[in-house]
Design a protein around this nucleic acid. Structure first.
Length: 259
DNA sequence: ATGTCGGCATTGTGCCGA
């Protein structure tokens, strides 16, 4: 079973590119971020016609996450626990069952810029809540994953130009510490495990000719519980679609699990 | 740092967020 994560940067602008990629790679599940759409405006029927079940946690203009799945979605939950005041749509989770079941969590972690400031405080607080949900997932001792746009460059080697990100919320020491604390609870970071070399990126800015310079960063991650990691047979990044017409600034990241 | 993009309020263009 192939499970992918893809920050599409707006469903309205990306419906053609997303559809082409779905037809070519036929992932079983896709965790979407930055749909930038309310639930009612999301083109669910379009994807249902392609054989996908659809669950959306949308928001006007900003953020918004969703799940496309060829397998029925059970027990869908929207919103990251831990703050009833948080109105930003950045978290959705559901269970799918093949021969075994797996809990799938899709997330769009706050960008946090400018740092320091209230947006960075929100990012760090959100990561604390993520840490708590991560602990619960591990305690269940079942296959589960948390995938999405983490807006975290884990190490200098995950950026083509690390000095350019030194004071950025995506790479500050407190950001990296918070991410590492979550991974070190016991997750396998799938791309790091399967593609351990340098120069592995998932995002190239639209600005400054970043793509032509290969000035990329790796910020889209898939974290697997031990029970899910044991099932992983492959992982990869569909970086070639970044060069197509009207691309997102992110590319899909996927894992293959032998469920 | 910025050779950009998406969405929105809004009818020509500027703002926000990334």
């Amino acid at each position: 079973m192939r499970i992918a994560t893809f920050n599409i940067n707006g469903i309205k602008a990306r419906i053609a590119a997303l559809t082409d990629w779905l037809k070519e790679t036929s992932p079983d599940v896709v965790l979407l971020q930055e749909i930038k759409s309310v639930d009612a405006a999301f083109p669910s029927e379009h994807f249902e016609d392609m054989g996908y079940n659809v669950a959306v946690h949308g928001q006007k203009s900003y953020n918004g996450v969703g799940i496309l799945s060829k397998i029925p979605l059970d027990d869908v939950k929207r919103g990251l626990p831990g703050d009833d005041e948080d109105e930003q749509a950045r978290w959705i989770e559901a269970t799918v069952a093949d021969s075994r079941s797996i809990r799938l969590c899709g997330l769009y972690l706050p960008n946090g810029n400018p740092a320091p400031g209230p947006k960075y405080d929100y990012k760090l607080a959100w990561m604390e809540r993520l840490h708590e949900r991560a602990r619960e997932l591990l305690a269940a001792e079942e296959p589960a994953l948390m995938a999405g746009d983490y807006n975290v460059i884990p190490e200098d080697r995950d950026a083509a130009n690390p000095d350019g990100w030194r004071d950025d919320a995506l790479a500050l020491p407190r950001t990296r510490d918070a991410f590492r604390r979550i991974v070190n609870l016991g997750f396998t970071e799938a791309i790091r495990a399967r593609m351990p070399g340098d120069g592995v990126y998932t995002y190239w800015d639209y600005q400054g000719g970043a793509l032509d310079k290969n000035n990329g960063i790796r910020i889209d991650h898939v974290l697997l519980t031990p029970q899910a990691a044991d099932l992983m047979t492959d992982a990869g990044i569909d970086s070639e679609i970044r060069r197509r017409e009207k691309p997102s600034d992110h590319v899909p990241v996927w894992v293959e699990l032998d469920l």
